[in-house]
Design a protein around this nucleic acid. Structure first.
Length: 731
DNA sequence: GTTCTAGAAC
DNA sequence: GTTCTAGAAC
């Protein structure tokens, strides 16, 4: 057992607290803080958005930087603003860490009470009082989104009555400087679970008429090639449906993991429910008659390989029946291999109803598809096409007409799909495995050398595809909940615009395991505007006027939209090397050459202006195709630097120093990318003194005069390039 | 009313 | 990547 419940709930070392209050105006947030601060022996700072701007209302980033400052001074912090939705709470949670526990205290009092208090009060800091208060409180409560541990809180206290609030005040007041509170959720009443059941029941009714659904199940039973047994035919009954869900909401772990005992605490139980999860059926063992023993070996081998690459994401092997041979084989082989049961487990149930009848949340499900990617045929394929609705069929067609054995194709679901609304599934990945059934196309005639190879490829493609969804989806999760359809159509827009380019780039949607690029940029799609650098690298003679230097391996040019006084790009001329994700050991000499050329240009510029400082590096996920090294002066004085993304792409971990990249590639054969979209939307901080700023204009005005030294990290290993004789440390 | 951000279109 | 612009934030 990696995680001990007692260990987790009784932190011993001294920790600062960042307590985010959550509640409508009039819920008593300020009073709560004041009461705690009055009697606490721990140093507290209350940060109130209504007064942070010199007594006037401020904004979230002011609160954030003020909170960061207070924590740095060793003070615990109350964030006194409504924080009613996840978005509002987002940046604060990130201030937590080894030294800081982040708690939420939810003042979830009756709306009536909040309104009457806000209407009555005078002299409110936020100037919210009198008649308009009622409307505001009502509006705010409509978007209320209760905090979850998975947002990053180590403790959440829910208060639904005034006496709950009193209790919470007592708890926090009693905390001395060295005390801490147990982690987890406290005080939540069951009402929310009931609401969810109600909503789910409504959705189910609206999206899938009960009779249609049972027809679908009957159909599946008959057409399936393997004997499929519906374990629990009465689960379509509303009564047992809702009781199942109640169970799912309270003891979901037990339901979802009958196969492997899981030592989850309450804390990680909840956060895991939000983890991206791929549910997949056994590929090829049903209609394609692949040997079960061999298939189980492949499954477990591939799961072991990927389970560590997937972060907090989970893989779930799903089979319809308890008695299934492949299920028990996989279960026992996984146990033998000691695969982490939090990252992989087996589940008995219908893959199209994992949440509604099994309480298991899966964001992505795999389909054991046929080569024409057509519905029907029986088994899992028929069930998934049926459950996903007609939109998935056309969405599938848009992406691929057919599939070769060993390959996978990702199909995002739209918000109209019942699988999305009812089960919370955002993508289906079609996979085609090897076939040993002489009645079906591409039969391998029991050639298990080939068969196992193809089956391995199939699972590799599947898990790679899932990984790419996890990577690109992480940031968009919240938005997707609101507007799934447009999010998806936007995401895949590039593939439709640009047929010519996408024919060349066949790796756009198809996840082809035989391609050498499985680890690289395979799922990237480049719009027409992203091709300019590629064109220059391929045909430099056509762009002589725009290029500063042309050599056999690289070309150098001024960035068309420089983000600083001096900003040039060193382009690799190698074809197929689109970005850093594609760089491997073979390219070591090339990236060293690019660095040398970049350095030469930096030095040339320093000769002209000795006050400049340069940094050389790559974007983790560049917008323009063709590997390019940025050589950029650190003044960032440019009218083209206009937004957060611009700034953060050069001043967060998203920017990978060339020296580090060279080191990593020579050591590990590839660079570690930091291509999380979160980095690009981080708060704006000065790259010298690290102070936070509310917007780009203010940041720019600050950096124009900030003369703090650069952070130590940048001063090491030649990450910054100064003029000769200027201060620089190397090691 | 003005400034600023963020999403869509290209 | 940029430009345009609606609407949020100030």
């Amino acid at each position: 057992m990696d995680m001990d419940v007692d260990e987790a709930s009784k932190p011993k070392e001294e920790k600062l607290l960042l307590v985010i209050l959550v509640g409508a105006p009039g819920s008593g947030k300020s009073t709560f803080c004041e009461e705690v601060m009055r009697s606490s022996t721990r140093p507290w700072v209350r940060i109130c958005q209504d007064t942070i701007g010199n007594g006037k209302a401020g904004n979230k980033s002011q609160c954030l930087s003020s909170a960061a400052g207070a924590l740095k001074d060793g003070k615990s912090v109350f964030i006194d603003r409504c924080n009613l939705d996840r978005e509002q709470r987002s940046g604060f949670v990130e201030l937590g860490g080894a030294q800081v526990d982040v708690h939420a205290v939810v003042l979830d009092l009756p709306a009536k009470l909040c309104i009457s208090r806000s209407v009555k009060r005078t002299g409110h800091e936020g100037n919210l009082q009198g008649g308009k208060a009622a409307a505001v409180v009502n509006r705010m409560l409509q978007k209320k989104e209760l905090p979850k541990l998975s947002e990053g809180f180590s403790r959440i206290t829910f208060c639904q009555t005034e006496s709950d609030v009193k209790e919470a005040v007592k708890t926090y007041s009693a905390l001395g400087p060295l005390d801490n509170l147990p982690h987890g959720c406290f005080g939540q009443k069951s009402s929310d679970a009931k609401v969810q059941v109600g909503i789910m029941r409504f959705l189910k009714k609206a999206e899938v008429p009960v009779d249609a659904e049972s027809r679908e199940n009957k159909n599946r039973n008959i057409t399936s090639s393997q004997t499929v047994e519906i374990k629990d035919p009465c689960h379509k009954d509303m009564e047992s449906f809702s009781s199942n869900l109640d169970k799912a909401n309270t003891v979901s772990k037990n339901v979802e993991n009958p196969a492997v005992g899981c030592p989850g605490t309450h804390v990680d139980q909840i956060s895991k429910d939000d983890a991206p999860t791929l549910a997949f059926p056994s590929i090829s063992t049903s209609d394609f008659q692949f040997n079960h023993e061999k298939a189980a070996d492949v499954i477990v081998e591939k799961v072991a390989e990927f389970s560590n690459k997937l972060g907090n994401a989970r893989l779930v092997f799903v089979d319809l029946t308890h008695g299934s041979k492949i299920l028990s084989l996989v279960k026992s082989k996984a146990a033998q291999k000691n695969i982490d049961s939090r990252k992989f487990f087996t589940h008995v149930g219908d893959i199209t109803q994992l949440y509604s009848t099994g309480g298991l949340r899966c964001t992505v499900i795999a389909n054991a598809a046929n080569w024409r990617l057509k519905p029907g045929g029986g088994g899992v394929n028929a069930a998934i096409f049926n459950a996903a609705g007609p939109a998935m069929e056309s969405a599938t067609k848009e992406r691929a007409q057919s599939l070769l054995p060993g390959n996978a194709v990702i199909v995002p679901l739209t918000s109209s799909s019942p699988l999305f609304t009812r089960e919370g599934v955002t993508h289906v990945i079609h996979v085609l495995g090897p076939n040993m059934n002489p009645q079906r196309p591409n039969c391998l005639n029991n050639d298990y050398n080939k068969g196992c190879k193809i089956l391995k490829e199939a699972y590799t493609s599947l898990f790679e595809a899932f990984a790419s969804i996890v990577r690109t989806g992480a940031e968009q999760k919240n938005k997707r909940d609101v507007d799934h359809g447009s999010e998806k159509s936007k995401k895949y827009k590039g593939a439709e615009d640009n047929s010519e380019l996408n024919i060349i780039d066949s790796r756009v949607e198809m996840v082809d395991s035989s391609s050498k690029k499985t680890d690289g940029s395979m799922n990237r799609t480049w719009g027409s505007w992203a091709q300019a650098l590629h064109q220059m690298a391929m045909h430099p003679e056509k762009h002589k006027n725009d290029l500063l230097e042309i050599s056999e391996d690289v070309v150098v040019l001024n960035d068309l939209y420089p983000k600083a006084q001096k900003h040039v790009l060193v382009l690799a001329r190698t074809g197929g090397l689109d970005c850093l994700a594609d760089v491997r050991n073979d390219h070591l000499d090339l990236i060293k050459k690019m660095h040398a050329v970049g350095l030469k240009w930096a030095e040339k510029f320093l000769h002209e202006n000795a006050s400049l400082v340069f940094r050389l590096g790559y974007h983790s996920a560049p917008s323009m195709r063709q590997l390019h090294l940025h050589v950029i002066s650190q003044d960032f004085e440019s009218k083209h630097l206009k937004n957060k993304k611009h700034w953060n792409s050069f001043n967060t971990a998203f920017f990978l120093d060339s020296v580090n990249v060279i080191q990593e590639v020579s050591k590990n054969g590839k660079a570690t990318l930091k291509d999380d979209d979160k980095l690009l939307s981080m708060e704006l901080r000065c790259h010298r003194c690290r102070s936070a700023h509310p917007n780009i204009p203010r940041l720019k005005s600050h950096i124009s005069s900030c003369s703090s030294p650069f952070p130590a990290y940048l001063l090491q290993n030649g990450r910054l390039v100064h003029a000769q004789g200027e201060a620089s440390t190397s090691s």
